[in-house]
Write a protein that binds this DNA or RNA. Sequence first.
DNA 1: TGTACATCAGTGAACGCGCGTTCACTGATGTAC
DNA 2: TGTACATCAGTGAACGCGCGTTCACTGATGTAC
Lengths: 190, 190
Amino acid sequence: MRYEEDHKEKTHAKIVERASQEFREHGFEGVGIAKLMAKLGLSHGGFYAHFEDKEDLKDQAMEHAFGESFEIASDALRRGGVLAYVEHYTSDLHKDHPGYGCVLPTLSTEEGRRSPESRAKFARKFQESVDLLAEHLPGDTPEVKRGRALFIFSALSGSVAIARAAGDPLLSAAILRSTREQLTQFLRGL
Amino acid sequence: MRYEEDHKEKTHAKIVERASQEFREHGFEGVGIAKLMAKLGLSHGGFYAHFEDKEDLKDQAMEHAFGESFEIASDALRRGGVLAYVEHYTSDLHKDHPGYGCVLPTLSTEEGRRSPESRAKFARKFQESVDLLAEHLPGDTPEVKRGRALFIFSALSGSVAIARAAGDPLLSAAILRSTREQLTQFLRGL
DNA sequence: TGTACATCAGTGAACGCGCGTTCACTGATGTAC
DNA sequence: TGTACATCAGTGAACGCGCGTTCACTGATGTAC
């Protein structure tokens, strides 16, 4: 063999990983296949030996990004509970680096325009993160915990999306601060 | 004159209005100038007599959409206060008709990738809605009221964006319901 | 041990297509003389 | 009153460009005999 045994899988994984980062940074439509492959030192023709089409890559990149976000959330929750996760999510670091951040503020809107099949995959992966967060929340029943987790994700992702859109740095900071403070109060009140 | 005196302004307004709806439905990149003009019974060449370029149209369409949302919010707030606005925002009607809904869940992410000048305009227009909502909220100082308004917009816009992305209707409903309930509790607690 | 062939990840030219943008033009009307 | 010209919103062919996708090919290696 010209290449090592797992060479193709490694290349495949590299493409998915890089795509998931670029998609979060520039959106699905802002990332071209030729440019993406070139960034990995590959030519664009080989792309179709790895993926059926661009939609296939989007699916796999979304799954990868959710997995990555899950790990980051898992770490923060283990380290300092929901408060630590909220602090991390509303940080300037997260706001300023969408490519390495949560999928929700960067790709939810575009995902909403994709096929029902892709959106079902999105829902399934999102559920995993919701369940994870719910485990770290108080509540009499799993439904109550999950409802609270959904609310927290809504507030967090909305605040980061708007903070990134706002050209005014003071406003961006105020959005993230307000959400952090109100969620902190919310958690204390439970 | 071949046309009435205000004919051009009316055409201009029609383009902006339609664009603001199409942009919210399909995203900035999902709307082509030729198709947009064709939908209004016009040819694409005339576009550049009305706008400098597509970015110019985006700016004007965003401003228009914010103005429209402002009026809708204003009505709901006058009719039933913040609770009525929250109910309307988290309704299935709003979730299922992005073209006629709030700009935040549909265009915040893409706006975050635009020029600093455009984002500054976004920030200014968003502030108007924040101030409007803040007026209807309790709080000792204007800053406290505005902070609460920012939090509410974050939670609302995030919930609608994720609910639209989720292919599972049960999950979509749960996201909107949770946000509605938690915000209702939040408002009662103030 | 040497030769012919099979394998297969990756290459790069070529395709059709839709996009934003330009520009010479049209044609109905108003105006000047 | 009639003719020549100016105005100007809108037309539609044409442009270069980047996109997703296809496909005949390459070339290093493994395998068969």
